[in-house]
Amino acid sequence: MCKRKRTSGYYPEEVPKILEEGMRKTVMVNIYERNPLARKQCMEHFGAECQICNLNFENTYGAVGKDFIHVHHIIPLHEIQQGYAVDPINDLIPVCPNCHAMLQRKENGKYLTIGQLKERLNNKKLKLV
């Protein structure tokens, strides 16, 4: 498989010889408060297992992975844009960081739904069998 160069599309003089990182800059952003009790109730209901790919960090990594999981808002808070009474069972879902990242990426201007991501993963698994 041919890998596309990440610097393609840049003029050669725009690509520096030394790639620096770590410079400090200040950024102002909006954050949305989360209720830790809602997270706890979501995990009590679903467990600490990804509801998309079934990854359980404790089973995979041992004690260091116990209770490690992301909790995803099915309707993103930035779309709601106000405080609301969260339902931990119907509004939240435990997902691993990889699945969470895929749910937060847009494809053709839209976020993938949980069902769409599950379907893609299942289709991929079927092709491997």
Rank of each mutant, 00 (worst) to 15 (best):
Cys53Ile: 06
Arg4Tyr: 15
His73Cys: 11
Leu126Met: 05
Leu126Lys: 15
Asn30Ala: 13
Glu13Ile: 03
Leu117Phe: 03
Asn123Leu: 01
Thr26Ser: 08
Met102Lys: 14
Gly65Leu: 05
Lys66His: 13
Cys50Arg: 07
Met23His: 04
Glu20Asp: 06
Asp87His: 08
Asn122Ile: 00
Asp87Ala: 11
Thr60Ser: 09
Ile93Pro: 01
Glu13Gly: 14
Ser8Asp: 14
Tyr84Asn: 05
Gly83Pro: 09
Glu21Trp: 13
Glu49Asn: 15
Leu37Asn: 10
Ser8Val: 12
Glu79Arg: 15
Arg34Asp: 12
Ile31Phe: 14
His73Tyr: 06
Ile114Phe: 02
Gly22His: 02
Arg105Ala: 11
Glu119Ile: 01
Gln51Trp: 10
Lys5Gln: 10
Cys96Asp: 01
Lys17Phe: 13
Phe68Ser: 10
Asn90Arg: 08
Arg39Pro: 02
Gly62Glu: 05
Lys17Val: 02
Asn108His: 12
Leu92Ile: 01
Gln104Thr: 02
Lys40Val: 00
Arg105Ser: 11
Tyr111Leu: 11
Leu55Tyr: 04
Glu33Ala: 13
Phe68Ala: 09
Lys125Ala: 14
Leu37Tyr: 12
Leu37Ala: 07
Ile74Lys: 09
Cys96Phe: 07
Ile75Arg: 10
Lys124His: 12
Lys40Asn: 05
Ile74Arg: 13
Lys25His: 15
Gly62Met: 05
Lys5Ile: 09
Ile69Gln: 05
Glu20Leu: 15
Leu117Gly: 00
Lys40Pro: 03
Arg105Pro: 01
Leu37Val: 02
Pro88Ile: 00
Val15Cys: 05
Gly115Leu: 03
Gln81Val: 06
Ala38Asp: 11
Ile18Gln: 13
Lys125Arg: 15
Cys99Ile: 01
Glu79Lys: 15
Thr26Gly: 14
Leu77Phe: 09
His73Ala: 10
Glu49Met: 07
Ile69Glu: 00
Ala101Asn: 11
Gln116Val: 01
Phe57Pro: 07
Met102Cys: 02
His73Leu: 07
Val129Leu: 06
Met102Tyr: 05
Gln81Arg: 15
His100Lys: 05
Ala63Gln: 12
Asp87Gln: 09
Arg4Thr: 14
Cys53Glu: 03
Lys106Leu: 01
Leu126Asn: 12
Arg105Glu: 01
Lys125Val: 04
His72Arg: 12
Thr7Cys: 07
Asn35Ile: 00
Leu92Pro: 02
Met1Lys: 11
Arg120Ala: 06
Glu14Phe: 03
Arg105Val: 00
Ala101Pro: 00
Glu79Phe: 13
Arg120Gly: 04
Thr113Gln: 10
Gln51Thr: 04
Thr7Met: 10
Leu77Asp: 09
Arg6His: 15
Glu13Ser: 14
His78Pro: 02
Gln51Glu: 08
Gln104Ser: 03
Cys50Met: 03
Val27Glu: 07
Val15Pro: 10
Cys99Leu: 03
Lys127Pro: 00
Gln116His: 07
Glu58Trp: 12
Pro36Phe: 08
Leu77Thr: 12
Asn123Ala: 07
Tyr32Thr: 10
Ile93Met: 11
Lys17Thr: 00
Met1Glu: 09
Tyr61Asn: 04
